[in-house]
Design a protein around this nucleic acid. Structure first.
Lengths: 216, 216
DNA sequence: ACCGCCTGATCGAGCGCTCGTTCGGCCCGG
DNA sequence: CCGGGCCGAACGAGCGCTCGATCAGGCGGT
């Protein structure tokens, strides 16, 4: 009945909360590496235990099932992403520029953490209902960052977005193209993709337009 | 050394080509249903055999490994999608409208075949290198449909797309948001999403613009 | 200071089972 | 009776997870 974390936590045998935190971090680091390389199903619990420097039994003192490990990894990834986004967007005022910066940072994150993003999309169905709901909560606050940018832009009259939440989801998703369709994008650099996407989002597929629209 | 199919085919024990075709169709239908419900890993070969009305041994006369089944399913899905896209876009002239129609039809397909699309994105890593390359080929021609629309629009001066291939990949990918982020889009209807996406693509996040841009 | 005790973290051999794949026999048309 | 298609019992590798043994250190009584 402890209430440090809002999200539902994982049942453990070990009781020392601080120790749990450190061990979970160990496990996450090892598991992320392995999952990225071989996927969730092909990675055995034995391998995770070995890679994180724990015995199998010990590992199972900090989780209940293999699925728990995936959940831990996911939560860690999303928290990290969220933190980076907040850091970047908080320094900008102009909504259009803020949106641009958010897109650029998201793409930069997704470029650095391709494996994590691919994992997020490919293995999420391995989570049970409980795990998915936990993820959903974290994802909502993440999407919220984008939605707020759009809404602020609306209020300031600098944007005209009818469905801010829907569009926030779409934009965030669109950035993942760089990770999930990489095989189809060989030859393109991150810069080119970033330019194309921000251009698309801000101005659409431009043509039949005599005057430039962007303020910068 | 048969040459009916450009893509690499699957080794079989049975020799009658016509029979192989029919059985493969049976297997695909059954497997797609099961994979959609439970995912690739949780579906057993036994279940597929039963659902397709074949014995296990018989099933293995038409494939070499379980992975082959996934490959068969994927090829079937993509071929179907491709056919529907060609049928719709071939009747329209104006590039902007053609692009709009292509987006709408893609979203409609993705709405009807959510399970298939999710499968396509979530389980593709279960394929080996060989299978992925086969898929890649099919996907290229699929993306090609979109790219050609964009390129034709460029030539006609109705669009100004710097990177047609890149953008084609992005647009196609964007449509998948409706399937892959459904949990985040509860409450939205297909129509609303379609409007928002076509709006985004054609005009960007509109604001600071006095006149309407669309011709229709 | 020493000892005995107890709690709680650690460990990995092994259990029980699932699942992909094989193989030897069966059926039936020609 | 021969061969091509069909069948499913049997195999065995590999997996997640358990559980009894082990160890380290804190604590209290003498």
């Amino acid at each position: 009945m402890k209430r440090h974390e809002p999200a539902q936590d994982i049942e453990t045998i070990v009781k020392d909360q601080d120790l749990i935190g450190r061990r979970h971090a160990q496990i996450c680091d090892a598991a992320l590496k392995l999952f990225s390389q071989k996927g969730f199903h092909r990675t055995t619990v034995r391998e995770i235990a070995e890679a994180s420097g724990l015995g199998i039994g010990t590992l199972y003192s900090y989780i209940k099932t293999k699925e728990d490990i995936l959940y831990l990894v996911y939560r860690r990834i999303l928290k990290t992403f969220e933190a980076r986004m907040l850091r970047v967007t908080s320094e900008i005022q102009d909504p259009r520029l803020q949106l641009k910066a958010a897109l650029e940072e998201t793409l930069r994150i997704y470029d650095e953490c391709q494996d994590a993003v691919r994992l997020l999309y490919q293995e999420s169905h391995a989570l049970g209902r409980r795990g998915l709901q936990g993820l959903f909560e974290v994802d909502r606050t993440y999407v919220g960052i984008f939605r707020e940018i759009l809404e602020r832009g609306n209020r300031a009259g600098r944007l005209a977005v009818k469905e801010p939440h829907l569009l926030a989801v779409c934009l965030l998703f669109l950035c993942a193209v760089w990770d999930l369709k990489r095989w189809n994008l060989q030859g393109y650099t991150l810069d080119v993709v970033t330019d194309s996407l921000t251009g698309l989002v801000l101005d659409g597929i431009g043509a039949n337009r005599s005057v430039a629209v962007h303020p910068a």
